[in-house]
């Protein structure tokens, strides 16, 4: 148990270092890309070059990804600061967001599903379902 926690902390810490390096690169080169995304590509590069191995981070990475919704809570609670705006424009804003989100989901899902089935027939490779 203690060993697993130590492992988890070490792995998350390494991922943090990568995102901080990304932040430094973004600032240094004035890139309009978040440091964490640069960190993502750095890790991909390290994995591709086989300088690091997937197993070294898998535990920490999968925990961060599966519990990611928790990390959204503090920013989402920030809505308490916009009580005035929300009481005036709230329902219209929500309606725009909801209808548009439905349209995006419908369009993306429909196109992806159609293309997937059409291309799967053409290809000899196995379809992933």
């Amino acid at each position: 148990m203690v060993r697993r926690i130590a492992l988890l902390i070490a792995q998350v810490f390494f991922l943090m270092i990568l995102s901080e390096i990304g932040n430094l690169i973004a600032v240094f080169f004035h890139l309009p890309i978040p440091g964490s995304v640069i960190g993502l590509f750095l890790l991909l590069f390290l994995l591709y070059k086989k300088w690091v191995r997937v197993e070294w981070f898998e535990f920490g990475a999968s925990l961060l990804l599966s519990e990611m919704l928790l990390f959204f809570v503090p920013s989402a609670a920030g809505i308490v600061q916009y009580g005035a705006l929300m009481s005036v424009e709230g329902w219209r804003l929500l309606l725009v967001i909801a209808v548009s989100t439905l349209l995006v989901m419908g369009a993306t899902g429909w196109v992806a599903d159609r293309l997937h089935h059409t291309l799967a027939k053409e290809k000899t490779t196995h379809a992933v379902d």
Binding site: L15, S19, S36
Partner: peptide
């Protein structure tokens, strides 16, 4: 923690 979580997306993408 969203920042290291974003970096963590590299793992499934690589696999």
């Amino acid at each position: 923690l969203l920042q290291p979580a974003t970096v963590a997306f590299a793992i499934p993408l690589y696999k």
